[in-house]
Amino acid sequence: MKFLRVRLRACDALPRDALAHLGFKIEGDRVRHVVLTPRGPVTVSKKCDECIFYKLISGSYVYGAPSIHNGVIKVVVADTRPARRILAEHRQQVISVERLRPASLVLTSKQREVLSAMASGGSISLIARASSRSKVAVYKLFRKTLKKVVELI
């Protein structure tokens, strides 16, 4: 499966000082987004047929949670025909579309192993000794793993 990283302009209903997207809920014909602002969580309501995020969810697979940085919404979606159609219809809201390789989103077994060992209280040195690798190799693997995890979040 192929994925697209999409950067969208925030809709008018979204507060300009939004820092993060905390979640959403669909109630009847409305989508309620919960976003974090400096003044605390704020709920934004929009009709489903006006919400590009809702259209992407219903027309394609959304990978991970969307994030908001400086008024730009970043979301990763499966590269499907419906997703491309939705993005073409809402061209004025789309800032950029970038193709991602699946390997850039999925953790390898070595990466899961290193992440698990670090989460269990291990250090780079201990993991390197246990896996018969150099500290530099384990450090690079851990750094790449963290970049993927951040991308997923």
Rank of each mutant, 00 (worst) to 15 (best):
residue 29 D to L: 08
residue 30 R to K: 15
residue 32 R to H: 12
residue 32 R to Y: 13
residue 33 H to P: 00
residue 33 H to N: 00
residue 33 H to W: 04
residue 34 V to D: 13
residue 34 V to M: 15
residue 36 L to A: 02
residue 37 T to V: 00
residue 38 P to F: 01
residue 38 P to C: 02
residue 38 P to W: 03
residue 39 R to D: 13
residue 40 G to N: 11
residue 41 P to D: 11
residue 41 P to I: 13
residue 41 P to C: 13
residue 41 P to M: 07
residue 41 P to A: 12
residue 42 V to T: 05
residue 42 V to F: 04
residue 42 V to Y: 01
residue 43 T to S: 11
residue 43 T to F: 05
residue 43 T to G: 05
residue 43 T to C: 04
residue 44 V to C: 05
residue 44 V to I: 07
residue 44 V to E: 07
residue 46 K to P: 02
residue 47 K to C: 04
residue 47 K to T: 05
residue 47 K to F: 14
residue 48 C to E: 12
residue 49 D to H: 15
residue 51 C to Y: 06
residue 51 C to H: 06
residue 52 I to C: 03
residue 52 I to W: 08
residue 52 I to R: 00
residue 53 F to H: 01
residue 53 F to T: 04
residue 54 Y to L: 10
residue 54 Y to W: 15
residue 54 Y to R: 07
residue 54 Y to N: 13
residue 54 Y to V: 10
residue 55 K to G: 06
residue 55 K to Y: 07
residue 56 L to D: 07
residue 56 L to E: 02
residue 56 L to N: 00
residue 57 I to A: 12
residue 58 S to K: 02
residue 58 S to R: 05
residue 59 G to Y: 02
residue 59 G to A: 11
residue 59 G to M: 03
residue 60 S to L: 00
residue 60 S to Y: 00
residue 61 Y to A: 10
residue 61 Y to R: 10
residue 61 Y to W: 06
residue 61 Y to I: 10
residue 61 Y to V: 13
residue 62 V to P: 07
residue 65 A to Y: 02
residue 65 A to Q: 03
residue 65 A to K: 00
residue 65 A to V: 01
residue 66 P to Q: 05
residue 67 S to Q: 14
residue 67 S to V: 14
residue 68 I to F: 06
residue 70 N to H: 14
residue 71 G to E: 09
residue 72 V to L: 09
residue 73 I to H: 04
residue 74 K to H: 04
residue 74 K to A: 09
residue 76 V to D: 08
residue 77 V to K: 01
residue 78 A to C: 10
residue 79 D to N: 10
residue 79 D to M: 06
residue 79 D to H: 05
residue 80 T to I: 02
residue 80 T to P: 05
residue 81 R to D: 13
residue 82 P to E: 07
residue 82 P to G: 12
residue 83 A to M: 10
residue 83 A to F: 01
residue 83 A to L: 09
residue 84 R to C: 08
residue 85 R to V: 08
residue 85 R to S: 06
residue 85 R to I: 03
residue 86 I to H: 02
residue 87 L to W: 00
residue 87 L to P: 05
residue 87 L to R: 00
residue 88 A to Q: 13
residue 89 E to F: 01
residue 90 H to V: 04
residue 90 H to C: 07
residue 92 Q to P: 03
residue 92 Q to L: 04
residue 92 Q to Y: 03
residue 93 Q to L: 15
residue 93 Q to C: 12
residue 93 Q to A: 13
residue 94 V to L: 08
residue 94 V to Q: 07
residue 94 V to G: 06
residue 95 I to R: 12
residue 96 S to M: 09
residue 97 V to Y: 10
residue 97 V to Q: 09
residue 98 E to V: 04
residue 99 R to H: 15
residue 99 R to C: 15
residue 100 L to V: 13
residue 101 R to Q: 14
residue 101 R to M: 14
residue 102 P to K: 12
residue 103 A to E: 15
residue 104 S to P: 03
residue 104 S to H: 08
residue 105 L to R: 08
residue 105 L to G: 06
residue 106 V to D: 14
residue 108 T to K: 05
residue 108 T to V: 01
residue 108 T to F: 03
residue 110 K to E: 14
residue 110 K to M: 14
residue 110 K to A: 15
residue 111 Q to H: 10
residue 112 R to S: 01
residue 112 R to H: 01
residue 112 R to F: 02
residue 113 E to A: 08
residue 114 V to N: 00
residue 114 V to C: 00
residue 115 L to N: 08
residue 115 L to D: 11
residue 115 L to H: 12
residue 116 S to Q: 08
residue 118 M to S: 07
residue 118 M to L: 15
residue 119 A to I: 14
residue 119 A to F: 11
